[in-house]
């Protein structure tokens, strides 16, 4: 779960003396939204984002309804005029959990990843985080999702794991929501099988209740920001 395993290691950078139009074109070509700026020793200086560019250009230019004079007037606008100096960055040894919390806190779309010498090692975007969570949830593998309501006491999860293991079914992922209802938690178990009839019966026979899928998610999740 370290950033180094999930970041993009080939980073497209831009020169601070490049024009804003060049940066804009580079982003369009590479389908990216963040361009770090580094010095001659590959140390991170700044970052420019597509939002910085949109804010810097008049509406007519973004819409393509500009005149040649309008564009000519902006030709001297450089990346260095609009870039964010010393941007928030993360380390390759930070974890994905760190990155999630930081992205929420700083409301950014990507972090440059730098080592202790400030050298640019990679970039981690929200898109990379999403990919890593798709992997963790295993939802690219075929399976069936169950939701079991369990009492808040020791040993409940073990009973479920034992029952599922007895049936020879592999786990895709297990998520626990601790704030479902008082003294209860909801366990979402993604099982890598099409055949859940017997295991559902066994779980019910142990005294657990299977939740109606339509009462899952949004309404019951805690609203803590």
């Amino acid at each position: 779960m370290f950033v180094s395993n999930h970041m993009k290691k080939t980073v497209i950078t831009v020169d601070q003396d490049a024009s804003v139009f060049e940066a804009q074109q580079l982003m369009a070509e590479k389908q990216i939204r963040h361009l770090p700026i580094v010095d001659a020793e590959n140390r991170l200086l700044a970052i420019v984002t597509d939002r910085d560019i949109r804010s810097a250009l008049p509406y007519t230019l973004l819409k393509g309804s500009h005149t040649d004079e309008e564009k000519a007037g902006l030709i001297d606008l450089k990346v260095k005029n609009i870039m964010t100096l010393d941007p928030k960055s993360i380390s390759p040894m930070d974890t994905i959990q760190d990155a999630l919390l930081l992205i929420q806190q700083h409301k950014v779309g990507a972090f440059p990843v730098i080592n202790e010498k400030k050298e640019l090692m990679g970039i981690l975007s929200v898109r990379d985080l999403l990919s890593s969570f798709i992997n963790v949830l295993n939802i690219n593998e075929p399976g069936t999702l169950l939701c079991v309501l369990v009492e808040e006491k020791v040993g409940q999860l073990k009973k479920l794991v034992d029952t599922i293991t007895e049936e020879g079914i592999s786990f895709g992922s297990v998520l626990v929501n601790r704030h479902w209802e008082e003294d209860k938690r909801a366990v979402f178990i993604y099982l890598l099988t099409n055949n859940v009839v017997r295991v559902k019966k066994k779980i019910t026979a142990l005294g657990f209740s299977l939740l109606d899928p339509m009462s899952w998610y949004i309404d019951n999740l805690s609203q803590k920001e």
Partner: peptide, 8 residues
């Protein structure tokens, strides 16, 4: 597919 096999 978020609930049922095969998830596609």
């Amino acid at each position: 597919p978020s609930f049922a096999y095969p998830g596609t």
